[in-house]
């Protein structure tokens, strides 16, 4: 696309990146996992891992790299990181061992629960940071493309729904009924006589339906299942 203006294929850069990338990735993982015993941790490690992708996209072009990336994996690690952290934080309460929120030391069975709990939290942080940095990079690099010349609109717009659904459902148990509500609202928003059958308190459903319709137009677009998305986005 318009990428040809800025992207110059260079065999030197490509070869160098191919050589260096695995080492950088390993270093990022090392920084993440060794954060408990030496300087480092999830934030730094995550950024270094993300920089591997940034490097690849400099060598092989931003658009091809974006096409090559599996967006589901990207969304999976981004929201999965938060989910891991939240789950580990809630774990001590849910297990009923008398631990408080985030009291990682109260996990039973695991040897040295504080240390390995902290390591796991670091991994979660690294996942989120890496995912977000990759997303930020590609969005900023591709976002300013002239309207009409946007190759990303079609393939990724269809993946958005499954993506945001996964996010809504993942973080912990308490949000499960909330996301259920949301989908009910959405169908209610589109088909007007549905919510009365579905929910036992029509007034509540009504108010929240208008709320979601008014305040979150973006949600509205991205949360719909993909077949409906096709027709709607084109309009």
């Amino acid at each position: 696309m318009s990428d040809g203006r800025t992207y110059v294929e260079s065999p030197i850069i490509m070869a160098t990146v191919r050589l260096v990338a695995p080492f950088v990735l390993t270093y990022g993982l090392f920084i993440t996992l060794h954060g408990a015993s030496s300087p480092g941790g999830g934030f730094q490690g995550g950024v270094i891992v993300a920089s591997v992708i940034v490097m690849l996209s400099f060598a092989y072009g931003i658009d091809p790299t974006w096409e090559w990336l599996d967006k589901r994996v990207l969304v999976g690690i981004t929201s999965g990181g938060i989910a891991v952290f939240a789950a580990l934080a809630l774990g001590p309460i849910l297990l009923g061992t008398g631990g408080d929120f985030l009291e990682l030391g109260s996990y039973p069975v695991i040897p040295n629960p504080w240390k390995y709990g902290i390591e796991l939290v670091e991994v979660g942080i690294a996942m989120t940071v890496a995912g977000v940095v990759i997303v930020l990079f590609f969005q900023l690099a591709r976002g300013a493309m002239p309207p009409g010349g946007s190759p990303y609109a079609k393939p990724s717009a269809q993946r958005v729904p499954s993506r945001s659904r996964g996010e809504a459902a993942q973080p912990g148990t308490e949000s499960a009924d909330q996301s259920g509500d949301e989908t009910a609202d959405q169908t209610g928003h589109e088909v007007s006589d549905e919510p009365v059958d579905r929910t036992d308190t029509p007034t509540d459903a009504d108010s929240s339906a208008t709320d979601s319709g008014r305040s979150t137009p973006v949600d509205d677009g991205s949360d719909r299942p993909s077949p409906a998305d096709e027709g709607d986005d084109r309009r």
Binding site: G41, F43, V129, V132, V133, L136, L140, G143, A144, P147
Partner: peptide
């Protein structure tokens, strides 16, 4: 400061996204 740096880069990215949007 460690956390502030990471939040800082996230906010910078958001600001840049707004700039890109303004340019559009």
């Amino acid at each position: 400061i460690l956390t502030a740096i990471v939040v800082g880069v996230s906010l910078t990215a958001l600001a840049l996204a707004l700039v890109v949007r303004i340019h559009e």
